[in-house]
Design a protein around this nucleic acid. Structure first.
Length: 853
RNA sequence: GCGGCUGUGGCGGAAUGGUAGACGCUGCGGACUUAAAAUCCGUUGUCCUUAGGACGUGGGGGUUCAAGUCCCCCCAGCCGCACCA
């Protein structure tokens, strides 16, 4: 009997050895191909959750595999350490954001270490460290000097609970993404990054990202939202004003029946401000709210200004409305409406009794546009000179016609807005500028005075920004004139830090610059980025903007920071609810006689929906408990088993136990027969039994197959193959020396294959096999092509497409052999009774199909 | 509403157009044990009484010697966007 595998001791032993040997610390090495494997950096909340475990297990498998394949692998880790939760904790518990953050980092790091990750910890960064944000402030100023960062007065989304400004992207259904509070609109002076300058580049760049999920590419594509149309400008009759409109359907001018502008359009108040009912109308527009349902249900509302605009083509005077469905911040904030060919315009026209004139004919007959608008392609009608043209042709012709009259021009509009980065918060990177008191000039803080460091002595006695009401911090002098000046008290959106952290990892100790061109040139781009799909738009788009902006500021970086992206699925768990409707933690319940009950008092609980783990529903498991009870290898194995990584993973107690059993079984099955196996460098026998040949074939198929699976991110299939090989090896009955040799070969391969998944167990078994090398520093086994093919193949024989027999053939059998053997089968003969063979389909190694009738 | 993804046993999931259900979980039977746990062996898509057969990849059509896989139509679920002119 072998000794039971002591998971805890053994796992710790190997982690210590890796750390001592600095197995995962890397430097630039041009003799090897490089591979930059990156997991999205965590926010230091204090405890890792199962989503982290999944994320870092995946990146670790890739990192360890790539290293074994001879790559110089960089796999770093750090902390996205600035942001609101630290301030919320400070307010709730009286701690300091900095202390709270660093304590959390220490705790989480200990948890991550116990996962046994192949991380180069010497490159660890925390974004709240002044040595980190110092370089970020330099970048901010580089952007400022290039015109890529600017200040403007703008209406912002104000979160009344967090007392801060939110980016458009942080507003979900009209509510703050974190607090869920309805967002208010306020006007403030704000800092922006000019991401729109790169709108087209960012859009085109998506095409080159062929190792990104299509889903993410589509989302970014839609987010940028390029549309091509035209701007046109027409006089408003009876005034000196002109109405600027944007349209993507200049081909439908002849079908126009009204003009309309946004409620907050400057001309709206100017032209109609004193009209009766206007104020009430504006109020109604604003009260509709921005929630999903409100928008869905909101009626199209319009207010007739009483003015008209003349249709330049028909000469018709059309009414000018203020309408609630026109957005001020898209295009020009005004449109012309063609009810026959636009859903919204149609609804509006129906409501206000405006005429509906069809100007595009559907190729499949003429639909009745009075009932429903027609949006598709077709030929232009009712449009004089443009009749008979296709839609696209007519668009171009109308643009040309209006350009000739000097009334408009072709225009491209993007949905993407500039990135507002100002936050009225303490725990963020200070914007490194001062405002001179004498003239209000905005003066950048000189490089040699960076970083502008956050003061430690702050308090949360009052709402608002502690920086703003700090007694001394913001009072300074102008670096140019020495006059009194006030510091900017806004700090940056924390997406700023995460937009370049992958560059800081490359050169984390560099005091002069954020990173050197040389290191960036060697390591970039990231070869494999792994993280949650929730960052599909924001973080990934900002990072793509950042590399382009940095490049324009003279840094050496590729346009695209992430060559490969993988987005993992969520981790879900069953929910449990007691009779009183209270949620229960999975650890509080157990199954007795098929029913779920509370462990404490046996009270029945109901198993509910399987949903994403969330604290509110208590359907969470604590990774620390799991790692403690089952060990890192079992946790990693379970995470990778069964579910494909891009799909949701259901965490089950049975599943983790199954993984744990496999870890123990592997250890046991090898240690039980270890004494029988030949020593490690025993020469290969010249002859093998049929059984040994088969085993060797399985071994080499597994070596090749697991590698393919990992490269394709089919981790669940890799695990299945590993289990198959393991089953074959433990079930193998060795009868002679050659058999044992083959069995040893198989086990050695198996150990190498499990290494990316269960590195501690792999090292332990490797050592027990007599090796004095470290598996973390050992190359992936080479498979023998000649052994991949089996000597024989077993295939099905079909009669008219239905399987009637299976036959086993030599793998070099001829088509004639196949036909002959196939027809001899009883099942085939029986199926052929009363029929004659019309045709034989023979695909050697695949199938025989007898066509009979 | 628009766009995308997914649909296979009791469950998670495998299947370059070629033996559907690999691998695992669960269940059932057995061995070991005073007993249990652990472990090991067998079995586990559905239906028909068995030898054996029939049916089976959300539903309906089609292409093909052969369809889970390709094409068309429909249904359901999930995700993203949300009046973007």
């Amino acid at each position: 009997m072998s000794e039971r595998y002591n998971i805890k001791e053994t796992e710790k032993k190997w982690r210590d050895i890796w750390a001592e040997r600095k197995s995962f610390e890397v430097t630039e090495d041009t003799s090897k191909p490089k591979s930059y494997v990156l997991a999205m950096l965590p926010y230091p909340s204090g405890r890792i959750h199962v989503g982290h475990v999944r994320n870092y297990t995946l990146s670790d498998v890739v990192a360890r595999y790539k290293k074994a394949k001879g790559f110089n692998v960089l796999n770093p880790m750090g902390w996205d350490a600035l942001g609101l939760p630290a301030e919320n904790a400070a307010m709730e518990r009286g701690t300091h954001p900095k202390d709270w953050t660093y304590e959390n980092i220490a705790q989480m790091k200990a948890q991550l270490l116990s996962m046994g990750l192949a991380i180069d910890w010497s490159r660890e960064v925390a974004t709240c460290d002044p040595d980190y944000y110092k370089h970020e402030q330099k970048m901010f100023l580089d952007f400022y000097k290039k015109g890529l960062a600017y200040r403007k007065e703008s209406v912002v989304n104000w979160d009344p609970i967090d007392n801060t400004v939110l980016a458009n992207e942080q507003v979900v259904d009209g509510k703050g993404w974190r607090t869920g509070a309805p967002v208010e609109r306020r006007k403030m002076s704000q800092w922006f990054f000019k991401i729109t300058k790169y709108a087209d580049e960012l859009l085109q760049g998506i095409e080159t990202l062929d190792r990104w999920p299509d889903k993410v590419r589509t989302m970014q594509h839609n987010w940028i939202g390029k549309s091509q149309g035209m701007n046109a400008s027409f006089p408003i009759n009876g005034t000196d004003e002109k109405l600027d409109i944007y349209t993507t359907r200049p081909d439908t001018f002849y079908g126009a029946s009204f003009f309309a502008m946004a409620a907050d359009h400057p001309l709206a108040k100017k032209l109609a401000g004193d009209k009766e009912g206007f104020d009430a109308f504006i109020q109604e527009c604003q009260s509709v709210g921005t929630s999903e349902e409100a928008i869905e249900k909101a009626d199209k509302l319009g207010f007739d200004t009483g003015y008209t605009v003349t249709n330049p083509f028909t000469g018709e005077e059309l009414p000018l409305f203020v309408a609630n469905f026109i957005l001020m911040d898209y295009g020009t904030g005004a449109i012309f409406g063609c009810p026959a060919h636009d859903n919204r315009d149609h609804e509006f026209a129906k409501k206000y009794g405006l005429k509906i004139v069809q100007v595009v004919e559907s190729p499949e007959g003429t639909p009745d546009v009075q009932d429903e608008p027609y949006i598709g392609p077709g030929k232009i009608i009712n449009s004089e000179d443009f009749n008979g043209m296709e839609v696209d042709e007519a668009k171009a012709a109308v643009i040309t016609a209006l350009e000739e009259k000097d009334m408009g021009e072709g225009a491209t509009v993007y949905r993407l807005r500039d990135w507002g980065v100002s936050r009225q918060r303490y725990w963020g990177c200070p914007v490194p500028v001062v405002y001179r008191e004498s003239d209000g000039a905005c003066i950048p803080v000189p490089d040699d005075q960076l970083p502008v460091e956050l003061p430690y002595d702050i308090n949360y006695d009052e709402p608002g920004n502690p920086l703003d009401r700090h007694p001394t911090w913001k009072y300074t002098t102008c670096p140019e004139t020495g006059e009194p000046a006030i510091r900017e008290t806004d700090t940056c959106d924390t997406f700023f830090e995460s937009s370049w952290y992958f560059l800081r990892y490359l050169d984390p100790k560099n005091e002069e610059r954020g990173f050197s061109d040389e290191k960036s040139g060697y390591w970039m781009p990231v070869d494999q980025y792994i993280g949650g799909v929730e960052h599909a738009v924001l973080h990934l788009l900002y990072s793509r903007f950042f590399t382009r902006a940095l490049k324009d500021c003279g840094y050496e970086v590729p346009d695209e920071p992430f060559a490969g992206l993988f987005t993992q699925g969520m981790v879900t768990h069953a929910t449990f609810e007691d009779a009183d409707g209270n949620w229960c933690f999975p650890a509080e319940v157990e199954q007795r006689d098929g029913n779920w009950v509370k462990i404490s008092d046996g009270a029945p609980v109901k198993q509910g929906a399987i949903t994403k783990m969330s604290k509110s529903k208590k359907n969470v498991v604590d990774p620390e408990d799991i790692l403690d009870a089952y060990g890192a290898d079992a946790a990693r194995l379970f995470i990778l088993s069964d579910s494909p990584p891009e799909r949701d993973l259901e965490w089950t107690e049975g599943g983790i136990e199954g993984a744990w059993r496999f870890v123990n079984k592997l250890h046991r099955s090898l240690t039980d027969i270890l004494g029988n196996l030949p020593d490690k460098d025993t020469t290969q026998p010249s002859k093998f039994s049929e059984n040994a040949k088969k085993l060797r074939s399985q071994t080499h198929q597994a070596i090749a197959g697991v590698a393919d699976d990992i490269e394709a991110f089919h981790m669940n299939k890799a695990v299945a193959r590993i289990r198959e090989l393991s089953n074959a090896l433990s079930g193998f009955k060795a009868k002679d020396e050659a058999d044992y040799w083959a069995q040893r070969e198989g086990y050695e391969a198996l150990i190498c294959l499990i290494n990316p998944v269960m590195p501690h167990l792999a090292e332990e078994l490797w050592e027990q096999m007599g090796h004095d090398t470290i598996l973390a520093e050992t190359q992936w086994p080479k498979h023998d092509e000649a052994l991949l093919a089996n000597d024989t193949v077993t295939i099905g024989v079909q009669v008219n497409g239905k399987v009637r027999a299976t036959i086993t053939m030599d793998s070099d059998a001829s088509k004639d052999d196949y036909e002959k053997v196939a027809l001899e089968q009883d099942g085939v003969q029986k199926a052929l009774e009363g029929k004659s063979v019309k045709k034989m389909i023979v695909v050697p190694g695949r199938i025989v199909n007898v066509v009979a009738g």
